[in-house]
Lab assay of single mutants.
Amino acid sequence: NNDALSPAIRRLLAEHNLDASAIKGTGVGGRLTREDVEKWLAKA
């Protein structure tokens, strides 16, 4: 759900042209964290 994304995470996803639904969030309530996105980028 994009409503649950912080502005910083939205920007990070946009910079790398990523789809938030492709990344499993580990934050509160399954929210994406910066670490989630960075780990996903490291694997890609």
Rank of each mutant, 00 (worst) to 15 (best):
L12P: 00
L12N: 01
N17G: 15
L13S: 00
L32I: 14
V28M: 11
N1H: 12
I9A: 04
S21Q: 09
L41E: 01
N2H: 14
D3Q: 12
A20S: 08
K24S: 09
L12D: 01
L5N: 05
K39H: 10
I23R: 02
E35L: 10
L12G: 00
R10F: 05
A22G: 08
N2Q: 14
R34M: 15
I9Q: 03
L13T: 00
K39W: 13
G29L: 07
A42T: 10
L5I: 14
E35N: 07
H16F: 07
N1D: 14
I23W: 04
D19E: 10
R11G: 05
E38W: 15
L18D: 01
A42N: 09
A14W: 14
E35P: 05
T26Q: 04
V28P: 15
V28S: 09
E38D: 08
G30M: 03
L32R: 02
L18H: 03
G25I: 03
G30V: 02
A22F: 12
D36G: 00
S21L: 09
I9S: 01
V28D: 10
R34F: 15
N17Y: 06
L5M: 10
G27R: 02
W40A: 15
L12T: 03
L32W: 09
E15A: 15
L12E: 03
T26R: 03
D3A: 10
V28E: 14
E38R: 11
E15K: 15
N1E: 14
H16A: 04
H16K: 03
T33H: 01
A42P: 04
A20Y: 08
R34P: 08
A4H: 15
D36E: 03
N1P: 12
I9P: 00
K39S: 12
G30F: 01
G25V: 03
T26P: 02
R31A: 14
S6L: 07
S21I: 06
K43H: 09
T33C: 02
A44H: 15
A22V: 13
I9M: 09
E35D: 10
N2R: 11
N1G: 13
L18T: 06
E38L: 15
A8D: 14
A4L: 14
V28N: 07
